[in-house]
Write a protein that binds this DNA or RNA. Structure first.
Length: 360
DNA sequence: CTTCGGCTGACGG
DNA sequence: CTAACGCCGTCAGCCGAAG
C-alpha cells in the first residue's frame, strides 16, 4: 500500500515564537537561552533565528560563547516553555485537521498520513501548500514540509530546504534523493557514529548504501547494519504512532555550586521530586522505579535506581528514595563533587494495585 | 532459555 | 589568555540474577 506522509517542522520554533510575541524583534538576531543561574552567562543556547545563525550562533553552544560572536543588536532571551507549548497546541490542532492519521513527534514537529486525503503526490503537494498558508494565517508561524512515502524520508525532506521550505521525494526516487546527503542525516547517526563511519571511508548515505555488509557488521553488529542498509535506500515501514505513552518523567537541575554534601543536595532533589509528582498526577501515572542522576564537575554522568513491587504515586517515597540513592552514591564516591543532579520515575502503570488475571 | 532490574552511552529536539 | 556547557526524553546494549 503506497502511503503519502508529510513531515511538518516549525522553523526555528522558540525564536519564531518570540518574534511573534514581540514583532520589533523581526530582522534582528534572536537567541533563546537556557540559563543555569550559576553565573551571569552560564547556560546553553536553545534556539537561534536565522539572523543569529549567520553570526555562527546555533543550538547547544554555551551562552558566553554566543555572546562573543554576537552583534550589538543581538537579543538574548530566556526560554518561556509555557508560551511555546501554548503555541504548539494551536499549531497541532490545525495540522491534525489535515491528516488521516496524525503523530505529534515533538513540541515543533508532526507527521501527517494524508494517503486518502491527497490521493496522489501531486495532490499532496497542493495540500502541503494549503497547510503552510493556513498555519501562517491561523497561528502566524512558518514551517518547512517534507513529502515522501515514509516517515524517514519525509523527515529528511523537511530539513532539506529551510526555512519555509517544501520538498517532495516521489516514490522510487528515495535512494537517489538520499545518496548525496551526509550519513549523519539519518536518525541515530550522531557525532560518535559519524566518526566510526568515516574511519571506514563512509561519508554520505550513498556510501552507506554501497558499503560492504560484512565490514559494517564487524563494526556495528547485525541490528545496526540492517537498519543502516534499509535507511540508506530510503526504506522505512514504521507506522505513525498517534498515542505514544510516556516511558519516564525526569527533572534535572544545575546546582548553585559544585557539592558533595547531602544536606545541600537533598532539598534540591525534594524540589525536583515535587515537580515530577505533579506531572505524574496530571497524567494519572503510577510508577515502580525511582532513579537519580549525578553529573560530576567533569560532566560525567552516573545513575542509580531502585524498583518497588507496588506501583505508587507517593511524593514521600520518591523524596526518601532519591535521598537514599544519592546518599549511597556520595558515600561510595567521596572524591567526587557534583555539578548537576536529577531525579526520574519510570516503569509506569495506569492504576495503583493493578490486578493480574491470576488474581481474579 | 527468557525476563527483569540496573546501568551506561548515544542521540535528538 | 583559555575555556566556557541545559534540560527532557528515547532507545540499544550489556551484565547478572531470577524465573
Amino acid at each position: 500500500m503506497q502511503r503519502i506522509i508529510l513531515h511538518v517542522d516549525l522553523d526555528y520554533f522558540f525564536a519564531q515564537c518570540e518574534e511573534l510575541r514581540n514583532p520589533s524583534l523581526k530582522g534582528k538576531p534572536v537567541v533563546v537561552c537556557v540559563y543555569s543561574g550559576r553565573s551571569e552567562d552560564s547556560g546553553a543556547v536553545s534556539t537561534a533565528n536565522y539572523e543569529a545563525r549567520k553570526l555562527g550562533i546555533k543550538s547547544g553552544i554555551p551562552i558566553a560563547f554566543a555572546k562573543r560572536s554576537a552583534s550589538p543588536e543581538t537579543v538574548f532571551l530566556p526560554v518561556d516553555f509555557d508560551f511555546y507549548s501554548e503555541k504548539s497546541e494551536q499549531v497541532m490542532e490545525v495540522l491534525r485537521s489535515f491528516a488521516d492519521v496524525f503523530e505529534q513527534a515533538s513540541v515543533d514537529e508532526a507527521y501527517l498520513d494524508v494517503s486518502s486525503k491527497a490521493k496522489n503526490f501531486s495532490g499532496a503537494k497542493s495540500l502541503a501548500e494549503k497547510i503552510k498558508s493556513e498555519l501562517k494565517e491561523k497561528t502566524g508561524l512558518t514551517c518547512s514540509v517534507g513529502i515522501a512515502s515514509n516517515k524517514l524520508v519525509a523527515k529528511i525532506a523537511s530539513d532539506f530546504l529551510k526555512p519555509s521550505g517544501l520538498t517532495m521525494v516521489e516514490p522510487r526516487k528515495e535512494a537517489e534523493f538520499l545518496a548525496p546527503l551526509k550519513a549523519s542525516r539519518l536518525l541515530g547517526i550522531g557525532k560518535k557514529t559519524t566518526e566510526r563511519l568515516e574511519n571506514l571511508g563512509i561519508k554520505t548515505i550513498g556510501d552507506l548504501a554501497n558499503a560492504s555488509p560484512s565490514v559494517l557488521t564487524d563494526e556495528f553488529g547485525r541490528n545496526w547494519t540492517d537498519y543502516f542498509k534499509q535507511s540508506a535506500l530510503g526504506i522505512d515501514e514504521s507506522p505513525l504512532e498517534p498515542f505514544r505513552e510516556a516511558q519516564q518523567i525526569s527533572r534535572i537541575t544545575t546546582l548553585k555550586q559544585d557539592s558533595n554534601e547531602i544536606s545541600f543536595i537533598a532539598p534540591v532533589l525534594d524540589f525536583l521530586s515535587e515537580e515530577i509528582i505533579e506531572s505524574a498526577k496530571a497524567e494519572q501515572l503510577f510508577f515502580r522505579t525511582i532513579s537519580i542522576t549525578a553529573i560530576t564537575s567533569k560532566l560525567e554522568t552516573h545513575t542509580k535506581s531502585k524498583t518497588f513491587e507496588q506501583p505508587t504515586q507517593s511524593l514521600e517515597l520518591l523524596k526518601s528514595t532519591a535521598r537514599e540513592l544519592m546518599q549511597n552514591f556520595l558515600s561510595q564516591n567521596p572524591e567526587l563533587k557534583l555539578r548537576r543532579v536529577g531525579a526520574r520515575i519510570s516503569n509506569f502503570s495506569k492504576k495503583e494495585n493493578q490486578k493480574t488475571l491470576a488474581e481474579f
